[in-house]
Amino acid sequence: GCWSIEHVEQYLGTDELPKNDLITYLQKNADAAFLRHWKLTGTNKSIRKNRNCSQLIAAYKDFCEHGT
């Protein structure tokens, strides 16, 4: 299931919640338009490089609020 937004804000980028895991989750569960909008298409590695934690948190919040 979903992590809470508080959990993501607190732990994203740590061993508790690697950016990797959040990106994988969104790529698996969000639709193509969402991924394009948040620039989460492409390889996990390129996304990790190009999107910082606050951008990923914003995307995750949007996903939780509007889910697909």
Rank of each mutant, 00 (worst) to 15 (best):
C64S: 10
K19C: 05
Y60V: 00
F34P: 02
T68M: 15
E65N: 11
E6D: 04
E6I: 04
T24C: 10
R36G: 10
K28I: 05
N44Y: 11
T41Y: 11
Q27L: 10
E9H: 05
R36W: 06
I23T: 02
R36A: 11
D31W: 02
E16V: 14
I23K: 01
G1Y: 03
H66V: 11
Q10T: 14
D15V: 14
S46D: 12
I57Q: 09
G67N: 05
L26T: 00
T14Y: 04
A58I: 04
K28S: 12
H66S: 14
C2M: 15
H37E: 14
S54H: 11
H7V: 05
D21W: 09
D62P: 01
R48E: 09
A59Q: 00
N50H: 15
P18F: 05
A30R: 00
K45E: 09
L56Y: 02
F34K: 02
E16L: 14
I23H: 01
K19F: 08
Y25H: 10
S54L: 12
A30E: 01
V8Y: 00
L22H: 01
Y25M: 07
K28R: 12
I23N: 01
E65S: 14
N50I: 04
A32M: 13
S4D: 10
K39Y: 05
I5H: 04
A58H: 07
E16S: 14
H66R: 14
G13E: 03
H66M: 13
A59I: 14
K45A: 09
A30H: 02
L35V: 04
T43N: 14
L17A: 02
N50C: 05
P18T: 11
E16N: 15
A32Y: 10
E65R: 13
Y60E: 00
H37G: 08
C2R: 15
C53M: 09
S54R: 15
L26A: 01
E6R: 08
L40D: 00
Q55D: 10
Y25L: 05
S54F: 08
N52F: 03
Q55V: 11
P18S: 14
F34W: 15
I47Q: 06
I57F: 12
D21T: 15
Q27D: 02
N52M: 05
I47W: 04
D62K: 09
I5W: 06
R48W: 08
S46M: 09
N20H: 15
N29E: 11
T41S: 11
T14W: 02
A58V: 07
I5A: 08
T68K: 15
T41V: 13
W3N: 02
K19Q: 08
A32E: 14
Y60K: 01
L40W: 01
N29P: 00
K45T: 10
W3K: 04
K61W: 03
A32G: 09
L12P: 00
C53D: 08
S54K: 14
R48H: 10
G1S: 13
T43A: 14
K28L: 08
A58S: 12
N52W: 02
L17F: 11
E65L: 12
E9W: 04
E16I: 12
D15I: 15
L22I: 15
I23A: 02
T43F: 06
L12E: 01
C2D: 15
D15T: 14
N20T: 14
I57Y: 09
I57M: 15
P18Q: 07
G42H: 05
L17Y: 02
T43M: 06
R36P: 00
K39P: 00
N20P: 05
A58K: 12
A30G: 13
C64A: 12
E9K: 15
F63C: 02
L12Q: 02
L56G: 00
G1C: 14
E16G: 08
T43I: 04
H37L: 12
T43G: 09
A33P: 13
R36N: 09
A30V: 02
D15P: 15
N52S: 12
L40Q: 00
N44A: 12
L17E: 00
G1L: 11
V8E: 01
F34L: 05
K39C: 08
D62E: 11
E16F: 12
F63S: 01
W38S: 03
Y25Q: 03
Q10I: 07
L22R: 01
A33S: 13
A58D: 10
Q55H: 14
N20M: 14
T24G: 11
K39D: 09
S46L: 08
K61D: 02
I47H: 06
K61M: 07
S46I: 06
Q27K: 15
L26D: 00
T43K: 10
V8P: 00
D15W: 09
K28Y: 06
G67E: 14
K39G: 09
L12S: 02
K19A: 08
E65I: 10
V8T: 03
I23Y: 02
E6K: 12
